[in-house]
Design a protein around this nucleic acid. Structure first.
Lengths: 182, 182, 182, 182
DNA sequence: TATGAATGAGGGTTCATTCAT
DNA sequence: CATGAATGAACCCTCATTCAT
């Protein structure tokens, strides 16, 4: 890829991350192009559809998340791994509203994206969850959809602002609720 | 207001409640008019903007919620009142996608609406929360924004489907997390 | 249908017939709206897609053609009926370039249109052709696709101008060629 | 012209001939460049506009046709020359959608092209026609525009497919019609 | 008052042409 | 000279709102 193309691609991604975070998924492609200082056609060249642009944006994040899930699964005990991942994910979403939208289901289908992009965050979460349940650390009746919804709640807490203390509190509340009662 | 105007207004509201619940906030006004069996102009006459229609719709719900908050506050112990209200609200949102959008922040601002409509659901929730905290039933560090976000999580769980068991589970998890530890 | 809607619909059709004839099928909907003196949304209201507008335009003509084919089949001898219909169709196309495009295949599929609209001009032509062949008036090896292509040739003769003498000549040439040799 | 420039020019022409023949005049320049294995800018360098590329493409064909017309005029009797040329042209157009578009008037003006390129196919055809008419082999009232339109009809027959039998039949029909009645 | 037709800005996407690399 | 990224006008279509009927 040529240097100028790479530069524009990066500018578009930067602009799109910010625009999606600020305005939500409904931000016009035109607006993203404007923020990036490029023509609309340039956006389309790099990302043929709006959805593909969105894919690309969260791809970065999803990759990080999947990697984190994997390394936690290898390095930590099941219980620690699961709760650490939950926290990691909540922290990631708190500083990236585009990701929060994706994880929170705001007009975006992470599952479908997983097939397209190959980064199956929810699959990673499911593995960690199952292991934690086998280890007796998490309620047996919980499924990954529950966890995703609880994550949505945590991410919803800060929408628009950043409040690390509130985030910790939310995570604590949710994780306490998730833990198996003796 | 003339009798026929009143009747049309009610039909529009009924249609809109169902339409918003079914299709979400993005349902076209045209579709609401169609379901109500009136012209689009009639919708606009009664509700100058789509947002004002949405206001009116959740007004019903918000009114119910505020009433419920009040009666629980009067009839029950603080702890019971708060957790019952949380459950009541989650149940209400689960069967009303429009309300869920409103409570979950999907393109709608409940706080602003509270000022416009006079029904301050979050205020009611805040009173119940504070009372429950004074009674030692809920963590002291939690605020009403946390509760709203946790509600968002519960509502997100069923988005599109209806799964009463999952809803109970979610409520249980969240409420367990909210409870003060000894 | 309301009077103003009917009027606009007619103006759109008139403008579209002329626009398609002048500019071809590629004329923008916007241009048709401009010529009709209406907004683009009005065109879309009456004709949801550009194709549906085109359908509607030739619908008039196709209906006339199908009727003509039927009445000739009933009233005339097979030979006369076929050749008269060919002439009728060529005359119709000569004064309606939109129809000429449709019959000549310029980016429009009459067969598909026949299914949508129910006016199967080529079916009518086929019946007349077959009857004329049975009567020994037309070469046995000719099929309706040949006839359609020959029609395209006749219509191509006047594209843009109107020259009745040339049209007669073309029809004569083609029909002479179609006749069975002794 | 440098050798590599010449080579690219030829590759573009080859690709364009095939692309226009396959997809018609609406094929994107980008696609032609792709088939030629060059950049779009290279296409534009050699052929500043898409139309100029199209000119160049049919130039090949027109040259062949003009040559053929000339050699037939010299080698054959007027009647044979004319009808042979008609057949030759129909055969050429049948296997070259781009040429068919040009000869059939599909968004391309052969007459204007004749002035630009210097290859006056219709002039050649006119000479053959006139000679054949003088020899009493073709109807006196026919002009070259008629012949072109009849050619359009023949070419329309096979649009998209290839059916040599149908082509022969069409040519036979048309030429029969063109012949002078005693 | 009710209607629904009219509006036209705005949406995403395509593509001939230009120009920096 | 070759490249292909950048451009932005133009395409068709949707829909909240307005207004003539």
């Amino acid at each position: 890829m040529r240097a100028d193309a790479k530069r524009n691609r990066d500018r578009i991604l930067t602009a799109a991350i910010e625009a999606f975070a600020t305005e939500g998924l409904s931000v016009p492609v035109h607006e993203i192009a404007r923020r990036a200082g490029v023509g609309t056609g340039t956006v389309s060249r790099h990302f043929p559809t709006k959805e593909s642009l969105y894919d690309a944006i969260i791809l970065h994040r999803l990759e990080q998340l999947v990697d984190r899930a994997r390394s936690l699964a290898e390095a930590e005990e099941p219980s620690t791994a699961f709760f650490e991942f939950f926290k990691y994910m909540a922290d990631a979403g708190a500083t990236d509203h585009g990701l929060a939208d994706a994880l929170g289901g705001g007009g975006y289908d992470v599952a479908a994206s997983a097939e397209r992009t190959g980064y199956d965050v929810m699959g990673g979460m499911r593995d960690l969850l199952t292991a934690a349940q086998r280890a007796g650390a998490v309620r047996d009746d919980v499924d990954v959809v529950d966890v995703k919804a609880l994550m949505t709640g945590c991410l919803a807490r800060e929408r628009g602002a950043t409040d690390a203390a509130a985030r910790s509190r939310m995570i604590e509340i949710v994780c306490t609720g998730l833990r198996a009662h003796r």
